[in-house]
Amino acid sequence: MLLLSIENKVDLLKAERLYEQYKYLMYSEANKILQDRHLAEDAVQQSFVKIIYNLHKIDEINCPRTRNFLVIICVNTAKNIYKKCLHLNKRGDTIDGIDADMADTGNDPLDILADKDSVKQITRAIEALNPIYRDVLLLKQAYGYGPKEIAELLEIPEETIKKRLARARKTLTRVLEKEGIK
């Protein structure tokens, strides 16, 4: 029983430490979207309900990776609150010109793998992506979530998540094609 108490205390400290570390950042990011103090607080609260269930995904409290993770959760929670407030439940986000079929350019895969510039270019392209695509892509590729988990985390239909992932990938493919790498 003592062991259980100690373990709980450790988990609780993690959640509370995250809150103390990032509450202003989360509030600030939420407030940029909502422009309302109370709604921004709601976004922080709702975000932490989700974060508490995902503490296992967070290894280190004070690091850029965790910082980005919490902001993704909070910003998307704020967006959901915003949509609910304005009754804007739009679906089917679009990006121009990404539906073109991929063509095999005949490049040697090993050349691409060996090219560190490819990673740099894709990194830059990911950072420049529209956040609605970037967030789901990062949750999948950097934080190891599946589409279903992302859907639950961001309160977005799973189908939408899959579409966004596919679109993000196509956009990145296009970047590489433009650079003549893929």
């Binding site: 690091c63 850029p64 980005n68 993770f69 902001v71 740099k120 894709i122 990911i126 990062l138 950097a142």
Partner: peptide
Amino acid sequence: AASIAAENLG
């Protein structure tokens, strides 16, 4: 690239 981007963005 996604892992690097997550670090950079944070």
